[in-house]
Amino acid sequence: MLPLFEYTKGMREEHTSYCPGCTHGIAHRLIMEALCERGELGRAIGVVPIGCSIVAHNYMNVDMCESMHGRAPAIASGIKRVHPDNIVFTYQGDGDLASIGTGEIIHAAHRGENFTTFFINNAVYGMTGGQMAPTTLIGQKTTTTAGGRSEAANGKPLRMAEIIATIESAAFVERVSLDSPANVRKAKKATLRALETQKAGVGFSFVEFLSTCPTNWGLSPIASLEWLRTDMIPYYPLGNFKTKEIGR
């Protein structure tokens, strides 16, 4: 009998601690599948952030390193210096990458660091209990914007993929969404392309995953996916922002 669904070798057979309906699990699996398909699982070294996904190393079957809050791109830069032939990646949330770690992510792209960053944008701080992130949408209610984020008080949300794409030494930048099977397949393609960019030594690669956080959004898993489509995607357009040619 053919199995319908299997664990990828890239994932350890553990129950995750993520909330029901959270899309971290999908992103984890996509990245690990991509590493397996490219035969890079054994050569991969990941850096996890501060945030819900600090526990990603319990699930991803690769060598991993915890990071100071926001410093994952700097840590990855150090790891890559020692192991230039390994696949090195960071996995970061929006508080980690777009707030406390903006300096590190911008300068990793600036130096054209040859590693890959997977950026989980769910428009909220998850681990600390639903505070406003730089990516929180206007009007979105969080525990620090009880009446909804206002432009007057907080400015407008940061579009990280667009920012990174303006940096000359960034080689591959794409925003994808985890809201539907079709978009998940596109996300997988972008993940593979990012890893290929790194493998070819072309420069910094960046994939932004629009993700859900049902718990802190106060929505059901299904309503969360719907909100991602109706509210997030219009502000955070999907697509490729930059692709440098991979020399053959």
């Binding site: 840590i75 990855a76 150090g78």
Partner: peptide, 19 residues
């Protein structure tokens, strides 16, 4: 590597040493 800050410098070194 000339880092963008001391925070980044120690983090890079942390990565290299962890590796």
């Amino acid at each position: 590597v000339q880092a963008e800050s001391e925070l980044a410098a120690i983090s890079m070194a942390y990565g290299a040493a962890a590796a």
